[in-house]
Design a binder for these strands. Structure first.
Lengths: 137, 137
DNA sequence: TCTTGACCTTCCAATGATGGGAAGGTGTAG
DNA sequence: CTACACCTTCCCATCATTGGAAGGTCAAGA
């Protein structure tokens, strides 16, 4: 199977398949006489694994770990769970940060008339002096 | 005021101040005889504006627009509001995507025993065949 | 047989926001 | 005079992905 077919079958772009190989996430593909990469069904399965993990937001490093565990029939599920938990906590932190941003923005957008007049609470907020937090020497 | 003082006063790192100047977000700073950048209070105010906007997740391009509007005493607040609204919608989309990831992950982490045994629903999910979506030719 | 077009190869570069660090000039206090 | 803190520019790295150039390969049709 050429890289194009593997790409179609897995949903991972050919560009990314080569990239994943280059950075060592995937083992070097078999080559035909013409130097074309040659993929088997198992490889496509791995590519789909990677794609699904990316869709869940795992980093390449994390996926490398997950792939290694997946290949190891004896892995303790604890190891897999730990990776997933760390990533989940990470996601939750970032979601909370973005929700804080969104909440502030919603308030500001709501407060802004959004008409011809120049007065704008959004700019007022952006330009505001930062609150002088009490910082005991 | 040297760049270090402006950095301390604004909360924007000296590195980033130079960067913002290099990419054209900020006007080239005044220079002293020794070629050191020289900042006035107004510049620090602008830097704080940029910092606050970054904290709300605005992109550099969006901040460029906001800065221009801020400088223009005659701007219609509508223009500001539109930028903020687009960004807010963007944030909400990304939050929803991440929440979908997190929800899936929570389910999987919950389903995984996380012990010595190799069986792991997390890997099972990642390795699952993608649902064959009906795709009427 | 020749051409066309769809594939494949490698290599280089860009994205966006930020940081690290090198190599060298400047300012000030001891 | 010497430290040391500051400043300058320049290059490189991150992370995941995409775009493109320059060139090789293969199959089908005239």
């Amino acid at each position: 199977m050429n890289i194009g077919a593997a790409s179609t079958a897995s949903g991972v772009s050919a560009k990314m398949i080569r990239h994943y190989e280059a950075i060592g996430l995937l083992r070097p593909a078999a080559r035909r006489d013409n130097a074309y990469r040659d993929y088997a069904d198992g490889d496509v399965h791995e590519l789909r694994f990677v794609r699904r993990a990316r869709k869940l937001g795992f980093s390449i490093d994390e996926i490398a770990g997950l792939l290694a565990l997946w290949r190891d029939e004896e892995r303790p599920s604890r190891d897999v769970r730990r990776i997933a938990q760390v990533h989940l906590a990470d996601l939750e932190t970032r979601i909370a940060e973005m929700q804080a941003m969104a909440a502030t923005l919603r308030t500001l957008v709501h407060a802004c008339h959004g008409d011809d007049r120049p007065h704008c609470p959004i700019l007022d907020d952006l330009a505001a002096e930062p609150p002088r937090v009490a910082r005991p020497s």
